[in-house]
Simulated assay, not measured.
Amino acid sequence: MTKIHLETFGNGKPIVLVHGWAMHGGIWREFAMQLAQHYRVTCIDLPGHGRSEAIDPFTLERISAELVGLVSEPCCWLGWSLGAAVVLDITRLYPERVSSLVLLAGNPMFTNSGLAWPGIDVRLLDGFAGNLHQNCQTTLLRFLSLQVNALPDHKHLLKTLKAAVLERDAPNAKTLQGGLDILKQTDLRLALSALNIPVSVILGGLDTLVPVAVGQQMQRLLPSLELNIIDRAGHVPFLSHSEETLAIISRFMDKQCI
């Protein structure tokens, strides 16, 4: 069995935090401590990230199977960026383990499809994939810059992201490539439209990776979806606008029975 690293803080309703591409559970630390004042918060390192063992192949189905066994009761799953695809897939495959869902700067399909679906240009992901083989560290730094470069305090946020990444060993190139493949190929729109559990989406108005326009498209797929826009936030609202993000999650969690 693959060794998956996790940390749990606080007491109360359970919520599991799943990080994004190339990151690890440590990115949540300060945010998780604040959330843990009211809830039981579990931060997971994705396979091959942080202190978790790698899996091969690094596919969405394998990731979901590895993570779902870590939690013994239905809970709220929160996924940020790539983590949003992971928690959506867990909900699709293991609905009995999910009581509610939060998609933070995430969506069911990351790439665009013309006017039908706003998303990231697939050529940008292809560029990341090509650069991974040439200079992995430079590619990661470029990706981090994209997450914050539209924000006024981008230098401070980029410094925070870099420090978090360097805190634990970086994923190997194969794992990083697998993550890019998931972002490029995954389409969970049907899975989202079929959900019958509470779902909250939190998007940043200045996000350059997950366009805010995707929120309306998601609401068309699932009219009951709760859409929250933090106007001045980018791709890391839990770092740049932690108070607003915490307030949204707390309101959502407090509505749930479990």
Rank of each mutant, 00 (worst) to 15 (best):
T2K: 09
K3N: 15
K3R: 15
L6Y: 15
L6N: 14
F9N: 06
G10Y: 04
N11E: 14
G12K: 15
K13C: 05
K13H: 13
G20T: 01
A22K: 05
M23R: 10
H24F: 07
H24C: 05
G25K: 08
E30V: 00
F31V: 01
Q34E: 15
Q37R: 13
Q37V: 10
Q37K: 13
Y39C: 05
C43M: 11
L46Y: 05
G48N: 02
G50T: 02
E53M: 03
E53N: 08
D56Y: 12
L60Y: 10
E61M: 08
R62H: 10
R62A: 11
R62M: 09
I63C: 09
I63M: 11
S64R: 00
A65W: 13
E66S: 14
V71Q: 14
E73V: 15
W77Y: 11
W77H: 07
L78T: 03
L78Q: 00
L82F: 10
L82Q: 00
G83D: 06
A84T: 03
A84K: 08
A84Q: 02
V86Q: 05
D89H: 14
R92M: 06
R92A: 03
P95H: 12
E96F: 08
V98S: 04
S99R: 13
A105C: 12
G106F: 08
P108M: 01
F110V: 02
N112G: 09
S113F: 13
L115H: 04
A116F: 15
G119H: 02
G119K: 06
D121G: 07
D121K: 03
R123M: 10
L124Y: 10
D126M: 08
G127A: 07
F128R: 02
G130E: 12
G130P: 05
N131P: 09
N131D: 12
L132R: 00
H133E: 14
H133N: 13
Q134A: 11
N135T: 12
T138E: 15
L140A: 10
L144E: 03
N149I: 12
L151R: 04
L151T: 01
H154N: 10
K155T: 09
K155S: 12
H156S: 13
H156M: 13
K159D: 07
L161C: 08
A164I: 01
V165R: 14
D169S: 14
A170H: 15
A170G: 11
T175R: 00
L176Y: 06
D181L: 10
I182Q: 09
I182P: 03
L183T: 01
L183I: 00
Q185A: 10
L188C: 08
L188P: 02
S193E: 03
S193Q: 05
S193H: 04
A194I: 09
L195E: 05
V201Q: 01
G204D: 04
G205W: 04
L206M: 14
L206F: 11
L209Q: 01
A213K: 13
V214M: 08
V214N: 07
G215F: 04
Q216Y: 13
M218C: 07
Q219D: 00
P223L: 07
S224Y: 01
L227W: 04
D231W: 14
L239S: 01
S242R: 02
T245K: 02
S250Y: 06
D254N: 13
I258P: 00
